[in-house]
Design a protein around this nucleic acid. Structure first.
Lengths: 216, 216
DNA sequence: CCGCATCCGTTTCGATACTG
DNA sequence: CAGTATCGAAACGGATGCGG
């Protein structure tokens, strides 16, 4: 059964929390920021949320107009969840929360999870790709889940899945990418140890990582 | 007993939610945005939160560095809660959430509560005081709780309590002020019915309300 | 496998009563 | 005024089952 409790407070902040304030709700939204995802994708991205909880949140977010549930055309026939227009407008809220947290929160634990979406969000917010250069399209492959990234107007754009052809393909995992964002100089060590594989011009990724602002 | 559960997710958004994602936490922060408040003030502002819950949230927010608990000097001797510097930096998060909610959320119910802080937040975000005019300091009195508002650099500033002398004093309640923000033309009806009492130049308040953007 | 539904122990919430 | 104590209800979290 889905949660329906309310703060019954007329303030816009409280009414917003009525919609996205339940536990895990904003993390589901986070996972949908870069495009549609299947139930199993969300499960892998949020392994510490139980399946019934995921189901409940998706139903509630669907009922309140934040998420759309869509069945893909046969023969694929699978169900995908994606943000509505209104739901995608939560991006500034998540951005503000993430930037606030970075300024004062304790470092993550050793057992913490890190989803592809999370690290790509962080990559997008960290890098400052040189506007004068032409940047090719990058395909990120995390354990067979694909993302597409490209530079538009001086900032990195990311979408889930294959958005057209890519000029280079990067196989890695979220934690290795996180380590490279902290220390871009470890690029060669990551490739030679197999934590990072680049098909195509690896200098593109090297330059992108090097453009990241130093971590606070 | 205070809540200590965690998402155990390395993403900054999740770590932020570990701190302010528990139920009622962000509404407690909202109530502290305009300055220090006592436990009883918070209780009146959030009447639907039980007292033990308020205690738990305040303790957690204190432990994580969002809220400071301070005992006033004798003879007052009362305890007040106020945001730390980091805690006050949650303002953009609450702003973003409130603005997002206004664009898509259902209207409040008939039984909803509306705290002085909530309506003053809305007032502050709605009005566009004319920069060319000199605006006097306004004291708002809601049921013996006082706020001070003044115009600085074209926007309304609000603080809880008495911040220096005020040029006019406005006695009202949150719902009446909300109604006037929706319909500034009802100003005279509000004064003659006693829902609004102004000591001083009432045209100041009239002009301020009239500068509000029409509601979406 | 995917997308849930059901069951069940634990934690948190919410309401009321009570104390220093 | 500023919280505790208590207790039933609800939500969470983990495991398992099940039809497609």
């Amino acid at each position: 059964m889905a949660t329906t409790r309310t703060y019954d407070d007329a303030c816009a902040i409280a009414r917003g929390l009525d919609v996205v304030g339940e536990r895990w709700a904003l993390l589901v939204v986070r996972e949908l920021l870069f495009g549609p995802r299947r139930f199993g994708d969300l499960r892998r991205a949020l392994p510490k949320a139980s399946t019934n909880l995921l189901t409940d949140r998706l139903r509630e977010l669907e009922a309140s107009g934040v998420v759309d549930r869509r069945r893909l055309a046969p023969p694929a026939g699978s169900t995908v969840y994606e943000l509505t227009t209104w739901g995608s407008e939560l991006a500034p809220v998540l951005d503000a929360l993430g930037h606030w947290a970075l300024r004062g929160v304790r470092p993550p634990t050793r057992t913490a999870t890190l989803s592809p979406t999370s690290i790509l969000l962080h990559l997008r917010d960290s890098v400052r790709p040189d506007r004068r250069r032409r940047w090719p399209t990058i395909r990120f492959a995390f354990d067979d889940e694909l993302w597409t990234a490209w530079v538009d107007d001086g900032s990195l754009q990311v979408r889930s899945g294959e958005h057209g052809p890519a000029d280079l393909v990067v196989h890695t995992d979220p934690w290795s990418l996180d380590a490279l964002l902290r220390d871009p100089a470890a690029f060669d060590a990551a490739t030679s140890s197999g934590r990072l594989t680049v098909h195509g011009d690896s200098d593109v990724l090297r330059r992108l990582l090097a453009s990241a602002e130093p971590r606070t």
